[in-house]
Design a protein around this nucleic acid. Structure first.
Lengths: 152, 152
DNA sequence: ATGCATTCAATGCACAAGCAATTAATGCGT
DNA sequence: ACGCATTAATTGCTTGTGCATTGAATGCAT
């Protein structure tokens, strides 16, 4: 592990930081402004909708809080409160798990599915514009207000 | 922009999120535990040291708060408080800029340089281990406690 | 059956971050 | 020279997050 390698690793890390900051910041603004959803909120909603879509019965596939926490890279406590926020807005619901009554099952509501569906185009557009700008500029660009890159 | 493209973009985004979470979380733990520094604090310190090393005179190269904010992807208010924290610990110092007395110049102190030098091996080791594990396992692995990947 | 360690989710607490408002200094136009 | 918009940095406030703790439920050993 010599000095050249080290410099390379640091460059890669800074690149990763820059990309993450740019995209997540833009996403945060767009999702928040247009749909009243934070990035993490959207991400959780998406996992729930994805899980749901795997099943024919509505409100059948449910997630434990911990599963979701791992998927969206949040602590269990953060997820607990995030679920509470989504529940307050009526986008998800908690259900007792009678098999293991410590656990709580979370599932998306109709309203939640609707909000997610509304926000998805925005989400995809921001992602495309910021992760693959060359593809977006190649003709079929979804309209995305730019200048929403930096925190301040 | 068809459905396959969309799925690809989302996959790329999740990949980016996962990598960022893994590395920054591990970094946070290691730097905090071993050196009492947060990731952002280290990052700022590093920019200051880098800038300083470009100049022969010590305490000559100085940065405005805003420049640093851009480099580490933080808002200027966040940077202002971060600088305040580092200053409280004696790692950096503020200096009035007599050319434009609105501006504040920030420079690293001896102590700050020392702390940065101490923390750098840890920083590099975590980066190598998590960004390029295949290279690290190829022989010259710096010692990095693993299990420090997830927030909770 | 009882006790004890373990696990799941929720909560108290501390802290970092962003936004908006504030203060101070600058520059520009008239 | 005087106002007025602009820019730099700080500060009040709110919010989201992680860690540690708590409370409840489970499983296991004795």
């Amino acid at each position: 592990m010599n000095d050249t390698d080290t410099g390379f690793v640091v460059m890669a890390w800074r690149e990763l930081l820059a990309r993450h900051a740019e995209v997540s910041c833009a996403l945060e603004r767009e999702l928040s402004d247009k749909h009243g959803l934070g990035v993490s909120e959207f991400e959780v909603l998406e996992r729930l909708v994805e899980g749901q879509s795997l099943c024919t019965e509505p409100d059948t596939v449910k997630f434990r809080v911990q599963e979701l926490a791992g998927q969206v890279h949040l602590s269990q406590s953060a997820l607990s409160r995030l679920i509470a926020r989504l529940e307050r807005e009526g986008l998800v619901a908690r259900a007792l798990c009678e098999a293991d009554r410590r656990g709580v099952f979370v599932h998306v509501t109709e309203e939640g599915r609707r909000r997610h569906a509304e926000a998805t185009p925005t989400h995809r557009a921001v992602l495309s514009a910021h992760l693959f700008p060359h593809l977006v500029n190649a003709g079929y660009a979804p309209p995305v207000s730019d200048e929403a890159s930096r925190p301040a």
